[in-house]
Design a protein around this nucleic acid. Structure first.
Length: 504
RNA sequence: UCCCUGUUAGCUCAAUGGUAGAGCGACCGGCUGUUAACCGGUAGGUUGUAGGUUCGAGUCCUACACGGGGAGCCA
C-alpha cells in the first residue's frame, strides 16, 4: 500500500489501495451493520480531511477505534471508494486488507484545549502551540507559505535578486522607530554611582576586577561604554533593511529583501507586532511612478496566487472569516488602483467635512493623515485601494526625494513618497523615490538634525555613480490580513511578539 | 502610553447584595452511511489575585495582574 498524503488520497482513483497518516478531526459512530465508525482524518496537506470508514469487524474496533478522540494520531490502510454522495473516502474493511493503527492517544480529552467546536481567537491565541491544528490556523499557515513563495516567484520572474540584509545593525540612523538593543554586556551589574575621584579604594579595586571579566560593561562614570561591547559600539535589531538593500540596488539594479523586522514601540493594536516580516524591493533607474506600478502589480500577483493555488482555504475564509472576501479580492484584482496626490486627498477630505462628514482630527495641508482619514478615502470615498503620493516633506523621512516646487499645485515642499491604502487594513505599503542628489540629501540630513557622519556609507552611494532609484516596504502580516480577512495581526503569524507577551 | 471594556465549569456565556446555572465539549447509554448529527443521563466550580464594606459579596469599593476594542506610532 502506498502512503499518500490526504491531498493526494482525495484525488486517487476508486479502488486504489492506500495508507494515510494523520490526526483525527472528528469521530462519529453508527450501530448499523454491526458497528460502524466514521473518522475524519487530516494531515494538513489541504483544507479537507478524508473520511475513513471503520467497520466493527476491525480487530481493535471496540478496544481502540471506538475510543478515538480529536487529534489522536493514526495510520489507516484501506481502499479508495466513492461515497454515496459522490466524494471519495477510504474503506478500512479488514476483508480487503484494511486496518487502523493508533499511533498516539490524546491524554485527558475533556481538557484537551482544541475541541471540535467553535473557539474564540483569543482563546486560541493563548494556545498558540496547538492552534494550528484548527481549520482556521491550518488555512492561515498554508496561505502564509503560499504568499511567501509567490512573493519570491514574483521578484525572481522579474529579474530581482534576493538580498539577505542584516538583522543586527550598529548604525542608529534608520530612524523608523524605537529599537531593541543587542548587547552581551552584563547589564545586571550595577553601574558605579560615584565619580572616580570619590570612589573608595575598595570599590575601585572591585570595579577594576569586574572590568577584566568577559561581558562586563566598561564604564565611564555613570554611563555604559559600548566600546567594550560585542560589536564595539551600540547595536540594535533592524527596523528596516532598506538602507542596506539600497547599496545592492546600486550594483544589481533590481533587488529585494525579506526578513524579520523589529520595533520596540509600545503599540497595542490589532495591526502591530514587535517582530514582523517585511518585504522591501528596491529598483534602480526608477521613479515614484515605476515604484507605484511595481507595488500594484505585486499586490495583484499575491492575490491571484492565493486564489488559484489555495482555492480551498480561500473558500473557507470567505465563508467563515469574512463574508464577501472573494468578491472583494476579485474587485481589487480587476480594478486599477487609484493614484491620488496628497494635496488632492486633502481637498477631498475638506470637501467631505464641508458636506457634513465628522472627523476626530482636523484636516489641513501639511499634517499627516490619521487612520480615520485613510479609512474614509479607501473604504468610503473610493471603495478600492488608493495610492497616495507626494507628501509634505516635513512629515516624511530624510531619504525621500524632494519634488520640484509646485508639484500637484501643493502650497509647500513635497517629497516623492507613497502610501498604499487598502480597505480593512489601512496602510499596507509605504515607499518612496530616494534622494539621489548628494547636496539635497545632505541638506535634508542637516535640516532634520541627524548625525551626518553616521551616514557616510549611505552618502557614498550618491558620490559614486548615483542613479534615481525607488522602493517600498510591504508588511507581510498586513498582506496576510488583507488576503485572508483575519482581523488581528497576532493571528496571521505563528508566534506573535507584542509588548508584554513573548510566550512560546 | 492614553481612553473604553472584560476576567464565573475544558470552551462560550447566564445569575435584584440572599442555595452558582445553561449550551457546546468530555464520559455512559439509545438511535443513525454519519458528516455543525440527533435523543436521554452522569461528572465537572477556591467566580483572575490581594485587601476592604456588609449579618451575608460572583454582584459594591480599592489596588494589582492578564485579555479584548479604539487612539497614537507605523508596516
Amino acid at each position: 500500500m502506498a502512503w499518500l498524503r490526504v491531498v493526494d488520497a482525495l484525488k486517487a482513483e476508486v479502488g486504489t489501495k492506500v495508507t494515510v497518516k494523520g490526526w483525527i478531526r472528528t469521530r462519529r459512530d453508527s450501530k448499523a451493520e454491526g458497528g460502524l465508525s466514521f473518522l475524519n482524518v487530516h494531515d494538513g496537506t489541504c483544507f479537507d480531511p478524508i473520511q475513513v470508514v471503520c467497520p466493527g469487524s476491525l480487530s481493535n474496533y471496540a478496544s481502540e477505534i471506538s475510543k478515538l478522540t480529536t487529534h489522536c494520531s493514526v495510520e489507516c490502510d484501506g481502499t479508495i471508494v466513492a461515497t454515496p454522495k459522490g466524494g471519495k473516502e477510504i474503506s478500512a474493511d479488514p476483508a480487503n486488507g484494511g486496518a487502523v493503527r493508533v499511533i498516539g492517544w490524546v491524554d485527558d480529552p475533556d481538557h484537551y484545549p482544541i475541541q471540535p467546536k467553535q473557539h474564540t481567537m483569543e482563546f486560541l491565541r493563548e494556545n498558540a502551540h496547538l492552534r494550528v491544528r484548527t481549520n482556521t490556523f491550518g488555512a492561515v499557515a498554508r496561505i502564509r507559505h503560499t504568499l511567501s513563495m509567490a512573493m519570491h516567484r514574483f521578484y525572481h520572474e522579474r529579474g530581482f535578486f534576493y538580498v539577505h540584509t542584516p538583522i543586527i545593525t550598529a548604525s542608529d540612523c534608520e530612524g523608523a522607530g524605537q529599537m531593541f538593543r543587542v548587547s552581551t554586556l552584563d547589564l545586571m551589574r550595577p553601574l558605579p554611582r560615584v565619580a572616580p575621584e570619590q570612589e573608595s579604594a575598595e570599590a575601585k579595586k572591585l570595579r577594576e576586577e569586574f572590568s577584566k571579566k568577559p561581558n562586563m560593561p566598561a564604564w565611564t562614570y555613570g554611563q555604559v561604554d559600548h566600546c567594550k561591547d560585542f560589536f564595539g559600539k551600540e547595536a540594535h535589531l533592524t527596523v528596516s533593511g532598506q538602507l542596506n538593500v539600497e547599496t545592492y540596488c546600486t550594483a544589481l539594479s533590481r533587488v529585494y529583501t525579506f526578513g524579520p523586522t523589529f520595533r520596540a514601540e509600545n503599540s497595542n493594536t490589532s495591526r502591530h507586532l514587535a517582530e514582523f516580516w517585511m518585504i522591501e524591493p528596491e529598483i534602480a533607474f526608477a521613479d515614484l511612478q515605476a515604484d507605484s506600478e511595481l507595488a500594484e502589480d505585486f499586490i495583484k500577483y499575491l492575490i491571484n496566487a492565493c486564489l488559484t493555488e489555495r482555492a480551498d482555504d480561500m473558500k473557507f475564509f470567505d465563508e467563515r472569516i469574512e463574508k464577501g472576501l472573494l468578491t472583494r479580492l476579485g474587485h481589487v484584482l480587476n480594478t486599477p488602483f487609484r493614484r491620488l496626490p496628497y494635496t488632492e486627498a486633502i481637498k477631498i477630505l475638506e470637501k467631505a467635512i464641508a458636506g457634513g462628514k465628522k472627523f476626530e482630527y482636523p484636516v489641513k495641508w501639511g499634517i499627516d493623515l490619521q487612520s480615520e482619514h485613510e479609512r474614509f478615502l479607501t473604504e468610503e470615498h473610493f471603495k478600492q485601494p488608493v495610492i497616495l503620493m507626494n507628501y509634505p516633506k516635513q512629515i516624511k523621512a530624510f531619504y525621500m526625494r524632494l519634488n520640484p516646487p509646485g508639484t500637484d499645485g501643493a502650497p509647500g515642499d513635497t517629497v516623492a513618497a507613497m502610501d498604499v491604502l487598502v480597505p480593512g487594513v489601512g496602510e499596507i505599503i509605504g515607499g518612496s523615490q530616494r534622494e539621489e542628489r548628494l547636496d539635497v540629501l545632505d541638506a535634508r540630513i542637516t535640516e532634520m538634525g541627524l548625525p551626518i557622519k553616521e551616514y557616510w556609507w549611505y552618502r557614498d552611494l550618491r558620490r559614486y555613480g548615483t542613479v534615481p532609484h525607488a522602493g517600498f516596504g510591504l508588511g507581510f502580516e498586513r498582506a496576510m490580513m488583507f488576503i485572508t480577512g483575519m482581523g488581528n495581526v497576532r493571528d496571521v503569524i505563528p508566534f506573535p511578539r507584542t509588548p508584554g507577551s513573548a510566550e512560546f
